[in-house]
Nucleic acid binder design. Sequence first.
DNA 1: ACTGATATGTTATCTTATTACATAAGTTGC
DNA 2: GCAACTTATGTAATAAGATAACATATCAGT
Lengths: 132, 132
Amino acid sequence: MTATHELTRNQALVFNALTKAESPLSAYTILDRLRDDGFRAPLQVYRALDKLLDYGMVHRLESLNAFVACAHPHCGEHGLIAFAICEKCGQVSEFSDVVIEEQVRDWTGQNGFKPSKTTVEIRGTCASCLNS
Amino acid sequence: MTATHELTRNQALVFNALTKAESPLSAYTILDRLRDDGFRAPLQVYRALDKLLDYGMVHRLESLNAFVACAHPHCGEHGLIAFAICEKCGQVSEFSDVVIEEQVRDWTGQNGFKPSKTTVEIRGTCASCLNS
DNA sequence: ACTGATATGTTATCTTATTACATAAGTTGC
DNA sequence: GCAACTTATGTAATAAGATAACATATCAGT
C-alpha cells in the first residue's frame, strides 16, 4: 500500500523545499526559496501547502506559523502526532503518542465533542542545545 | 495564598475584556472593544497580554491566534492545560490533564529535552453544535 | 470538440505582530 | 528633594502571515 500522491509541479516544489530544509519553514520563506523556480506570490505556496496538509505529507506547527515535511517515510495515516520544538536551534522532533491520543479520545468521548484535529506542541530546549 | 497580581490600568482593561467575552478574542478585536477606553494602537494590547500571559491569567490559543482568560478562579500555578475548540460556535473548554502531562514529562525526560511550554489544542465540533 | 473539475497566475487586501522612538510615572538610595 | 533606574505608556511605521477576487490554463471523460 503506497500512500504516495501524484503531486503537481507546485506541490512537488514546495514539498521538496520542506524536505531539504533542516527545520520548519514559514510560507514566505518557502516562497523566497522558490523564486528561481518561478514562484511569485504567497498563494502559490499556500495552495500547495493546503493540499500537502490534506495528504498528510506536511504538518503545520501552530505555535510557529511554520511547516515541516512529515517525518514518516510513507505518509498517510498516523494517529496523534506531537512535536518537540527547540527554541534555541529550531529543530523539531516528531513523535506519535498513543497514550495522549487515548486521553484525548476519553475527554472528547465523555464530553460529546467530535474532534477533527489535535495539536500537541512542546516548546523548550533540546538536548544538544542544553550541552553548549 | 492569593496569586492575584496588581494590574495596571491597561492590563486590567484587557483582562476585563477577555473575562466578559464568551469566546476567544484576537488582539485586534480587543483593541476595537477598548477604543472607548482610550486604546489606539495594537501594542497597547500586546503589551498587556504579554504580562497577563506571564502571570498565567490569560492563555493564548495558538491555532486561533486568539486569547482567553484562564478558567481557573485564582490563577497562577496549574499544570498542563488542554483546550477543546469548537470550530462551529467558537466556544472553548479548558481542562487540565495529568496523564498527558506525565506523558509529556516522560518523553522530554527520555530525550533530554527541557520543556518550557506545552500546547494541547483539540479542534472539532462541540456537543451542542452537533445537536442542531 | 465540449464540459466540468482541478491547477495556476496575479493583484490587492486583510489580519496579526513587532520595531523604533519618545514620554510619563513609580521606586530606590542618597 | 532629586538623581538614577526601572517599568508602563503613547504613537507611527512596518514586517510577517494569510486570504479574496478574478482571469487563465490544463487535463480527464464523454
